[in-house]
Amino acid sequence: MTSTAQGRAKLLLWVSPAFISSNYILAKAASGEIAPHLMALIRWSVALCLMGAFSWRQLGQLMRLPAREYLHVLVLGGLGMWICGAFVYEAAFSTSSTNIALIYAVTPVAIAAVNSGASGGTVLPRHWVGMLLALFGVLFVISKGHLGNLSATRLVVGDVWVVVAATAWVAYTLLTQRWPSALDTSTRLCAVTCAGVLILLPCTVIEALHAGQVLLTRRGLLLAAVAGVIPGFVAYKSYAFLIQKLGPAQAGLVMYLSPVYAAAIAWVLLGEAPSWFHFAGAAMILPSIYLVTSQNTRSTEAGR
């Protein structure tokens, strides 16, 4: 990877969490305005249209893929767009955005651990220090500066939905890199999103039949469209680029910054000013990004 591409990827590592964290706020705002699977379907349909506008010239490659890659695309679509999409919106009915952020904050550690074990690689001590420091910073923010508050958190049905979604996010991140593809990054993401939409279609119908109605308001439709543009198209395009350029362990770090960014977004949109613990948590989280993304000089040279 060229130094320019690496620099662009590391810069994007700081920006992507803003796109991803917006989904937590949208999920909570859309609760009661639109059915979870319907929101996910609209979100990814909008994102698919945007992706297709950039990748339609390369879509002919899909006709020449081996059968195994079609299965890979389908699995990734189920993990990334169905489970990571609809399940989070389902969770928002009974849990808080804080709980969602807390559970998702564990995913970078899981990604790094699984990736290291599966590849037989070595995670350097400074990488572990960085990940633990970042996790501690996230917990500090979520507990409002009092870590003892975390013990009072009760597991509700919504938290279970988020645990499943977070597990799917780990799998999606690792498999995206581990499964080789004949497609370029943009075209592959477009194909995966299309698979996700196809999976969401029957799920949305079943959801409506089970509820006996289609839950959808104008506000819900608007929120779903926004979700398609920002935490859908923009966030996943950025994340796919990060996985390709930095690897799954480093790309997964965007989940650490998401709670901090979510607080900033809430400040701008909802008028909720950050407190001292937000700044203290950020002071722990931000340096950790450098610790984990910094590479050993010798290993970097050897890889060129």
Rank of each mutant, 00 (worst) to 15 (best):
S97A: 14
A101D: 01
I199H: 13
L133P: 03
I230F: 13
F241W: 13
P202E: 04
S186C: 07
L183C: 06
V197E: 11
T300H: 15
K245S: 15
L150F: 09
I289F: 13
A302P: 02
G120R: 06
A86Q: 04
R64Y: 09
W267K: 06
S186W: 10
I285N: 00
V170K: 01
M81Y: 15
P66W: 01
A110R: 05
W14F: 15
A211L: 05
A47C: 09
R188V: 02
C194E: 10
H37E: 04
T176E: 11
L269W: 14
L124A: 13
V75A: 11
Q177M: 14
I111T: 12
P259Q: 00
A110T: 08
A165L: 08
P66I: 01
A264R: 01
H210Q: 10
L62W: 02
E207F: 00
A280L: 14
A273E: 07
L200M: 11
G228L: 04
V88H: 01
A191E: 00
T185W: 06
S3L: 11
K28D: 15
V156M: 10
A18G: 10
V114C: 12
H127D: 13
G148M: 02
R304G: 13
G212I: 01
A302G: 06
L257T: 03
A134L: 10
A227P: 03
V234R: 04
Y239P: 03
P259T: 02
T173N: 07
S116R: 08
S299E: 14
L189R: 00
E272M: 07
Q250F: 09
Q61L: 06
G7P: 05
A171P: 03
I243S: 02
A240P: 09
Y70V: 07
W267L: 07
